[in-house]
Design a protein around this nucleic acid. Sequence first.
DNA 1: ATCAACAACATTGTCAACAATGGCGCCCAG
DNA 2: CTGGGCGCCATTGTTGACAATGTTGTTGAT
Lengths: 218, 218
Amino acid sequence: MADTTHAQPTVTDALRADILAGRFEPGDRLLEVALSEHYAVGRAAIRSALVELTTEGLVQRQTNRGAVVRRISIEEAIQINEARAALESLIAAKAASIATAEERVELQGIIDRMRAAVAEDRGGDYSDLNALLHRRLREMGGHVVAAELVDNLRNRAAHHQYRLALMPGRPGQSLEQHASIVDAVVAGDEDGAAEAMRVHLLSVIDVLRRWGDASGIG
Amino acid sequence: MADTTHAQPTVTDALRADILAGRFEPGDRLLEVALSEHYAVGRAAIRSALVELTTEGLVQRQTNRGAVVRRISIEEAIQINEARAALESLIAAKAASIATAEERVELQGIIDRMRAAVAEDRGGDYSDLNALLHRRLREMGGHVVAAELVDNLRNRAAHHQYRLALMPGRPGQSLEQHASIVDAVVAGDEDGAAEAMRVHLLSVIDVLRRWGDASGIG
DNA sequence: ATCAACAACATTGTCAACAATGGCGCCCAG
DNA sequence: CTGGGCGCCATTGTTGACAATGTTGTTGAT
């Protein structure tokens, strides 16, 4: 349905990756000539990339005044995660509805590995497994449209999510939430899966909101 | 938070409007030079517009092979509306939570006018009021991110929605659903508003699915 | 008659130069 | 010392020409 064509990585992809990796920070100006030299392509390609990333919400552009990496406020990050919660709930419900037996086993396996990661205090591994779990659920749900939107939303909030991972005690806290999601999916309980996913992401938002208040940004 | 700058209408806007209005149909090739002449702008502007509309899902582009107006299958239209249901539920809940007294009165006024439109069989007016209701809810919800995504999703499914409006008996059917949404919002019942909105949009999907089956497209 | 190689065409991708715009600093008057 | 006006500079926007690619129609051999 959607293009699963692995088109070769474009300049847009490179720039997007650099922004997400923090190579360019919010507020940084994105000068066309500078980027043109940096990526060794013509200004036209850079221009195209900036347009694309603008519609994705990563870049802000003002006519005749150039482009900057968009700054996401805490308030907006909260909204992004609220939207994400709504969409991932839908995805989880779909996954609960149509996942194959093998896939359900696979999900439980991921939870087992998450448990082990928490027990042995391997935070990095837990973070990877977290991403893996959400990704697999997206794939299993077969909901191309929602999956695409979620991808975009994750990118937009990337900076804030990043800081979340550093919070002490978070892994243990969210482990049970993840387990609940998988339990519901494995049981084929659509509503339960949606609700579990919603609870999980809303708790993420809660942490975000508290963190924002504490730092006085929002 | 998001740019509310009324930037002057760009070529992108014009092309988007023409596609949504059916001036260009799904599958139509969008040749750069032709569009360049048609809109009396340089190829660069057209190119930029095509990139933008591609990320919006209205246009499909293959390198070195040009762009065409994207064709949305019934299955994808269903997914689009499912995602929209998830996001508009969120919006309705927010509206129920924060709408002012005046706004709640305004919503009831819209419902009254819808009732009158149905009673007097003014389908066009009903359709306009329908759009107005959804739009006002989006604005009242104050959820910029979700509102933006919903706007995009509406555009994507525009062709299919269009045919829906022509269905006989639809207005009366959806009127009560709309009334339920407004009742919940007016009562400040977040969960009720979300659920009512979900029911409403899922019923739209149901019609869509039946229609798709009947025509053997999906 | 069928198929492969090829050539001409249509279209997109890229590049460099030029025009237009907006910001910044300088100069000068008060 | 301050504030308004003016000109320069950095940067984006636009244009036109050229290169690369894909497609289509034609030719010639089997």
